[in-house]
Design a protein around this nucleic acid. Structure first.
Lengths: 112, 112
DNA sequence: GCGATACTTAGGCACATACCTAATTATTCT
DNA sequence: AGAATAATTAGGTATGTGCCTAAGTATCGC
């Protein structure tokens, strides 16, 4: 039952690329067709398509084809798995801080 | 000033690997020394060290060396950048749902 | 000092990933 | 039908990533 972990892994891998993140950000505003998505990038179409496939396989986006046009949309709730994981990683200190309504900041120690 | 984006990129890249995520999860409980961290993995020490370096460069963890022992800790607030980005990607629909206190779920459409 | 311990550095190999161009398929427009 | 448009498939390259072994370096404990 490591479905959650696999899903998380796919999502994080997908989001680790700036191009794919940009696509997600674009789609967060509204759905768009492939060529619209490709326009902002100085990248050949097939390259971008590959990114879209990765995003789709990760379950982050969905697509529907009408005629020769494919419309991609962000899947609402697709990022929930990340949200969830993130919640689990809060340190005890952070939890404490949360309860107290303190925002924690960190100083960068000199490297060793 | 794309410092935020660079930071986000580094963090997501770092978290895209299961080994590194496992390290983060471990460190979320408490700090640990390198050999403790390495123990659960069937991986040569130098390989794990490389992961630790990636995590440290991404600003997710810090380390301090006392004598010959290096103690690693999760940097509280290191994941904030991710949290922040995540917040920005909520679809209008998700926002709507949030306001209404509805939890959105998705059905997986048949692939096209 | 000397061996054991805890990392570190150096260098190398295999496979994954991000691109590309060229050629194809499927629709739509005229 | 034929040209234009929107994607897709196929296949190739180059760089990045994750892992390894072997050989340091720096403490620590006797």
């Amino acid at each position: 039952m490591p479905k959650y972990r696999d899903e998380l892994d796919a999502v994080l891998r997908a989001l680790a690329d700036p191009t794919r993140r940009a696509v997600v950000e674009r789609l967060a505003k509204s759905p768009a067709v492939v060529s619209e998505l490709a326009a902002p990038f100085s990248m050949a179409l097939p390259s971008l398509m590959q990114h879209l496939r990765v995003l789709e396989n990760a379950g982050l986006i969905t697509s529907q084809k009408h005629g020769r046009v494919r419309t991609m949309s962000l899947r609402p709730g697709a990022l929930d798995v990340l949200h969830l994981w993130l919640g689990e990683q809060r340190t005890p200190a952070a939890h404490q801080a949360d309860r107290l309504g303190i925002h924690m900041t960190c100083t960068t120690p000199k490297e060793t």
